[in-house]
Each structure stands twice: as C-alpha cells, then as structure tokens.
C-alpha cells in the first residue's frame, strides 16, 4: 500500500480531547459529522485545509488520554491516510490499527518535514519518502498486518465469523 499527501505537523502529547472533544462523544454518531470537528481545539484550520490522502506527522505520545475511537475515526473520515509519530499512546495506536488507519512510529522524520510538504509512504517497503530523504520504519507484527490488510477489525472479524 502506498500513500501520498501533504503533511500536517503537530507537537508532543496531542490528546484525544483536542483531536475530538469529549462533549461530542455521545451526541455525534455519524462518521462524516465527526470529521467536521477534527482537531477543533488544536487547529481550527485543519478541517478547512485537509484533503484525501494527507498525512499527520507528530511528536511523542500522539493520541494520549481517553480511549475514544472517534479521535481516530474523525481523522480517517477527514481524509488522513497515515499518521506518523515519534510514539503513540497505546490505546490510540490500537484504535488506529483496528480502524485500518496505519500508525507509523518514526522519530527521524519529525525534524525533516514541515506542514504542507508532500511526502510518500510505502507500507510494504517500510519507507517514508520526503522531498530530500528516505526514512524507514519497523514493519508491523503479523497479526497487525492481517488486521490492516483486512481494512480494520470490523471486516477482519466479519471474515472470521463467516469462516
């Protein structure tokens, strides 16, 4: 799988409350509607600028805080194709995989890209290609690859139940 898009760059400890505010967690159930509130308390311009295929590059502990999956769904529905961070909060990482949104751990890229740069991610080769450099990231464990290739945990379980 290959993805190409423009970078949205954020810092360390971006929490799920700023990605998707808690006040909407039980009132908004439509996935497209969730996308409209993405990054509302961190970057109000995000929803105006984001395009299908765009990529988030972040610092340490991206997605810390609540276990709410809307904080993954809203970004996926906004068009985000990949999130690259120095590290992820553990539940957020799991939620990304289970929603079929690749969450890549790569520290080196952070100081080598800016918001707006176009970059390319090759999941199979484990490579991130920027305008100047190529960075590599560790491959996903087998179980995670299976879930990602199925398109997330829902289609993965659907397949298992049918089988």
């Amino acid at each position: 799988m290959k993805f190409k898009g423009n970078v949205f760059k954020y810092g360390d400890n971006v929490n799920t409350d700023v990605i998707f505010p808690g006040k909407y967690t039980y009132t908004i159930t439509d996935r497209k509607e969730m996308a409209k509130h993405s990054m509302e308390d961190l970057d109000p311009d995000f929803v105006k600028k984001v395009k299908v295929g765009d990529i988030i590059v972040a610092g340490k502990n991206f997605g810390c805080g609540s276990s709410r999956e809307q904080a993954v769904i809203c970004l996926k529905e906004s068009g985000i194709s990949v999130i690259i961070a120095k590290s992820f909060a553990r539940i957020y990482f799991r939620n990304c995989i289970n929603e079929g949104l690749p969450a890549l751990i790569c520290s080196e890229i952070y100081d080598n890209v800016e918001s707006g740069d176009e970059i390319e991610v090759d999941l199979k080769e484990g490579k991130i290609i920027t305008q100047k450099n190529t960075f590599s990231f560790p491959p996903f464990p087998k179980k995670v690859q299976e879930i990602l290739s199925a398109g997330g945990l829902v289609p993965y379980v659907q397949y298992k139940i049918k089988k």
């Binding site: 276990s67 709410r68 999956e69 993954v72 539940i91 799991r94 939620n95 289970n98 929603e99 464990p141 179980k143 997330g152 945990l153 829902v154 993965y156 379980v157 298992k160 139940i161």
Partner: peptide
Amino acid sequence: AGIGRTEAASIWATGQLWLM
C-alpha cells in the same frame, strides 16, 4: 487495561483479543 470500542465489539463477538 483499557481498549477501544471496536475491540470491545470483537470480544463480545469472539470472546478474544490480541495483546502485546
């Protein structure tokens, strides 16, 4: 440990989940 909603649904359906 805490997990996400989709994971909870998969446990309801299959009784199982992956953990590292």
